[in-house]
C-alpha cells in the first residue's frame, strides 16, 4: 500500500544572495591574501596570488591574517575585512585545510 512520508530536510531560507559581477578589466588591480590560520595557508595562497597577478596583469598587494584573537575556526575581524575592502579588489582566502 502506498503511503506518504515527510521529507527530513528543513527548507532553506528565502534570502537570495547574488554573486558580484566579474570585474571586466582587472588589469592594474590589486590582489590580497587573507590567510586563514591553517599551516602553510599563507604560503599556498601567496603562491596562487602571485601567479594570478602575473597572469592577469594585476598587482599582488598584501597578506594578512584574520586579526587579533581570530583563528582558523572563527570569523575574520571586521576591521580586517574593512581594510581589505579599501586596499584591494580581489581577496584570496581558504576554508579549513
Amino acid at each position: 500500500m502506498n503511503m506518504k512520508i515527510h521529507t527530513p530536510e528543513g527548507e532553506l531560507m528565502d534570502e537570495v544572495v547574488e554573486l558580484c559581477s566579474t570585474a571586466p578589466l582587472f588589469s592594474g588591480g590589486k590582489i590580497g591574501v587573507l590567510e586563514n590560520g591553517k599551516p602553510n595557508a599563507g604560503l599556498l595562497l601567496t603562491e596562487i596570488a602571485e601567479g594570478l597577478a602575473e597572469r592577469i596583469d594585476a598587482n599582488f598587494s598584501i597578506v594578512t591574517g584574520k586579526g587579533e584573537r581570530a583563528n582558523a575556526a572563527t570569523a575574520c575581524n571586521p576591521q580586517v575585512v574593512g581594510m581589505l575592502a579599501e586596499e584591494v579588489q580581489l581577496v584570496l582566502t581558504g576554508s579549513a585545510d
Binding site: 500500500m1 502506498n2 503511503m3 506518504k4 512520508i5 521529507t7
Partner: peptide, 15 residues
C-alpha cells in the same frame, strides 16, 4: 510537494 515523498509500502527496507 517537497515536504512529502511517496513510499510504496511499509516494509522497513523500503524507506
Amino acid at each position: 510537494s517537497s515536504q512529502f515523498l511517496e513510499l510504496s509500502d511499509e516494509d522497513p527496507a523500503t524507506i
